[in-house]
Structures are given as C-alpha cells and as structure tokens.
C-alpha cells in the first residue's frame, strides 16, 4: 500500500550553497523561480508546498482558470479530465478514470421507494458512501433512512439516527436523498450556475465552479445537499477509480456536493449503487420515458406519493406502499 501523498522524489537541498553545488547556477535559478510559483499556487489551492511537484503547478494553474463545465467544448472537457487524472497520479499516486459521458437521448431518470419493503438495513448508505467517494472524516452520507412509527408519513416525525437491530416490529423505514426535482429550487438559487439539471433529469454540481456560498443548501426543502466544511478524506484503497466529472470524482473542501443518481453508473446503463445494494428490492430506478420500464410500472399500478408536493418542486422520486 502506498502512502496517501507521495513524497518529493529528491530530498531538498539544505542551504543555498548546497543547492548551487548540486544543481549548478542555472538549475538553481530555475528551481528558485519554481519555488516562488509553487508558493503562489499553494496559496491559491491551499495545498502544502512540500507536497507539490513541479509538474503540478502548471496543471493546477490551468485548472484554476478553467470554465464552467457546461461552457466547455468537448476538447476542453477532455483536457480538464486529463489534467485531473494526472493530478490524482501526482498527488495521490493513483490511477483514476474520469468520464464525461453525455446524457442519453430519450432518457429521463426517475426513482421510486417501496415503504413496505425497506427494513432499514442501510446497505444502500454504505454502498453510496463507497461508490461516490464520500468524505469519511465527517461521515458524509447522501442517503438518510428514517425509522417511522405507523401513523406518520413525514420524516420530520421519524427517527433519523437509530442504532439498534432492524427491522423493529411495527415500524417502517423511509429513505430520503436528493429528489432531483424537475423544478429545483437549488438550481434557481445558485449565483454562478454551478448547479443545474441535465437533460436526463439529474441535478448535478460542477464542483470546480461552485464558490461555496451555500445558498442552494438553504433553498433545498429536502436537505438533499452536503457541503465540504473540512478537507474530505477517503482511504486510498477505498477510492472508486471509475469516476464522472459531474459525479463521484474526488472533491476538495469548500464545495457543495449531492446525490447524482450515480451518474457514472446510470449513464452507462447500470443501476445506482443504492439500488444495486438494496437487499430487499425496495429501490426502483429507471427511465420515465420508457413505457416498459419498472419505474413506469410502479407509477401506473401502485399508489404513489411524493414529499412536500405543496411546494411545487416536482421531485422525480416517489414513495409507495405495496
């Protein structure tokens, strides 16, 4: 197992004279200029200069001045993805693949949650944390499961922090995550257009364009967003290497993040990690525009409802009882 940050290749010279002996004058001047640039880059990115290697500065500089993802040409998207992959290699010594898979035409993703089936095992939460590289330090989770007593239908009256064996008799379980509202208040609120709804209905965040004002968080009626107050940490061996620019790629502190219906999986025709992990089959995901999809079957044959319909947010996430 490699350490989290690879140390600089050569041990740094101790004094100027020492350095001159080892590199010669021209090389010394060059490295002095690099060191100065490095400190500047460190101030901007908040990284420890000791861990930055020479090639990184240029990459970080280009990353700092890149555009909003939606304004990038395919070539620019390709370029930023290559830079991010190189940076991951340089900074953490790991190989990742960041995709930019575009939405598939005639697809609008929707989700349904079977309240009868869910038994509160939280396998979905675990799978989500692993798949989406969520911060282990602050125990960030996109999915919340609420233990509810009969007679309740709003998570506000449920227990969102249970630590006991499940399922408990005479209780049911309700899963809450980002509902990917068709009329999303968070999208309207963002002052920099760093969050938007993709044509396939997924509400995404351009992590690198977000300035961290947290207005979207105040605007969300479902508590669907998470902010990186601290520098997120994921143990290297647990990092999911197959990533998407708008999905599970590694975040840094000060940016907003949220459930993306596992965009890195769903756009490749796979189920989101939570759906795949659910041992009871309570989670249903599919294309709302496909009349033969399972989600359309549920919407047609089950009695479904959505949370806080009165707000007019039009979530693409339905609850139902079998």
């Amino acid at each position: 197992m490699k350490p989290l940050h690879t140390p600089p290749a050569a041990t740094p010279p101790k004094t100027c004279a020492d350095a001159r002996r080892r590199y010669g004058r021209r090389d010394f001047l060059k490295s002095a200029v690099q060191a100065a640039a490095l400190c500047g880059a460190a101030a901007v990115t908040g990284c420890d200069p000791g861990q930055i290697q020479s090639g990184q500065i240029g990459l970080q500089w280009q990353e700092y001045f890149k555009k909003n993802y939606r304004l990038m040409t395919p070539l620019e998207k390709e370029a930023t993805v290559r830079r991010l992959e190189q940076l991951a290699k340089l900074q953490r010594g790991i190989d990742i693949q960041i995709g930019t898979t575009e939405p598939v035409k005639e697809v609008l993703f929707g989700y349904a949650f079977n309240l009868t089936r869910c038994e509160g095992f939280m396998e979905c939460v675990q799978a989500c944390v692993r798949e989406n590289n969520l911060d282990r330090a602050s125990k960030t989770q996109y999915i919340r499961i609420f233990e509810m007593e009969p007679g309740q239908m709003s998570p506000e009256s449920g227990n969102g922090q249970y630590f006991h064996e499940v399922p408990v008799d005479n209780h049911f379980y309700m899963g809450i995550q980002c509902f990917h509202c068709q009329n999303a208040p968070c999208v309207k609120a963002c002052p920099t257009k760093a969050t938007w709804m993709e044509p396939d209905g997924i509400v995404v965040v351009d992590y690198d364009w977000c300035i961290g004002c947290r207005y979207c968080m105040a605007a969300c009626p479902y508590w669907g967003r998470r902010f990186n107050f601290n520098e997120p940490h994921v143990p290297e061996e647990e990092i999911t290497r197959k990533q998407h620019y708008l999905g599970n790629r590694l975040r840094t502190r000060g940016m907003m993040e949220k459930c993306t219906f596992c965009i890195q999986r769903s756009r490749d025709g796979k189920l989101p990690a939570c759906v795949a992990a659910c041992p009871t089959g309570a989670r249903i995901f599919g294309n709302l525009l496909d009349p033969d999809s399972e989600i359309r079957f549920v919407l047609k044959h089950k009695k479904v409802f959505r949370l806080k319909e009165d707000l007019g947010t039009d979530p693409k996430f339905w609850f139902f009882i079998d």
């Binding site: 909003n68 309207k188 609120a189 002052p191 257009k193 364009w209 977000c210 300035i211 940016m255």
Partner: peptide, 24 residues
Amino acid sequence: LGRPFKAWHLTPGIGILNWPSSLL
C-alpha cells in the same frame, strides 16, 4: 464563502452571474 479564491466566478464576462434567476 467556502472557496473565496473562486469568487471571480461571479464576475459577468469572465465568470457567470446567474441573473435574474438567483436572488444572490
């Protein structure tokens, strides 16, 4: 701001100001 160094994203022209949608 979580990322003050990115505040230039708010400047119309070099960044994007989500006007008139965002009250901010």
